[in-house]
Design a protein around this nucleic acid. Sequence first.
DNA 1: GAATAAATGTGAGCATTACTCACATACTAA
DNA 2: TTAGTATGTGAGTAATGCTCACATTTATTC
Lengths: 203, 203
Amino acid sequence: MPPNAANPRKKPRQRRSQATWDAILDAATQLFGQEGYGATTNRIAERAGVSIGSLYQYFPNKDALLMALAERHLAEAFEVLQETFAGLLRDAPDLPETLTRLIDTSVALHQRDPAMHRLLFDQTPRTPDAVVRFRQLEDLLAAAVAQQLTRLGVGGPHPQARALLLVQGLEAQIHGAVLAPPAGISSEALVAEVRTLWLKALA
Amino acid sequence: MPPNAANPRKKPRQRRSQATWDAILDAATQLFGQEGYGATTNRIAERAGVSIGSLYQYFPNKDALLMALAERHLAEAFEVLQETFAGLLRDAPDLPETLTRLIDTSVALHQRDPAMHRLLFDQTPRTPDAVVRFRQLEDLLAAAVAQQLTRLGVGGPHPQARALLLVQGLEAQIHGAVLAPPAGISSEALVAEVRTLWLKALA
DNA sequence: GAATAAATGTGAGCATTACTCACATACTAA
DNA sequence: TTAGTATGTGAGTAATGCTCACATTTATTC
């Protein structure tokens, strides 16, 4: 994953400060996970066994803590996606199999840590910085998808555009299917339908 | 639009209280629009020419103010959509024309008041209540769409599921295309591509 | 090892703000 | 007129994000 240019506070140099940084993020993970955005910075510092001043030495404000959690979350997701795309480059499967792998990966990522996903998706304020950052990563993903579409000869007149729409559409559909399936329809049925629709859209 | 069951404070009975209610919402629209979620309730009351106590007589907390703005915003959107669906029932056009009308409506709704849309989409905390409420409206929309898909014979084995995926996917794609078009791709090109993809997906 | 500088840690307290409540005022009904 | 109800007020409270003057620990230099 590419580095975030706007990293607000310097990262630690000495070993003890690295421990402090880790303790703060761990405490933030716990308390934000339990209490949502309402968790207070003072209690996070307390839980981390660190003074509130130290917390603000590494994170300029409360939202920066969430951003750090988001970065960690997204980095994990990127690793998984990296493997998926590596596999696609290696095996060069046909369109149906390619779609299946992409969808399965997306589903797995949404099932991995639903609480954290919901915290970041629903409760974290989408600051301009966060929105820009997210779009940046979305474009990266789209580029990898565009490469696959082109390889399969289904990129259309503008593969990057088509890939971006696939990324955005698929994310919304899988998110809804996995985290908020409507009464009367199973997640599995929805995911299967997602695959059917995109297969026809791209074939 | 169906009423919201969890309406937290009673609506006004006398004329002057209706004026108070309107003044508060107008002030909220202005200040939230200018300053985002950071706008304070005290200043909203001041701008409305009303005491802070009166504000909290009608809105139990800050988020309820945003919810009221969202309800107003969504009600307007529902009116427009109602017209669109009425037209579809009247004219019973073929699939390409039906898709065009739905997409054009969605684009128009996203272009109508981008600032308010961004405020509600990005900055308003997605409380559990708000999430449930939004899903409720999404299902309603999906039901109307499912009716059209069935009419056109493209509902597949589960029209309601397919319609929900269309609503979620389309919303995400149009939102991205209109409010955050990537460098090098025009909104128009993206919207055209959205239409192409869904046409093939449903044909 | 002593001295100096740099990095890291502390927590009382400040400023802000969402929200309450005891009370006052305006309206309605008899 | 009077009683009752609806509406309006704003000083004050509690909670919380964040600062800053200072203390402590580690690295560096002589």
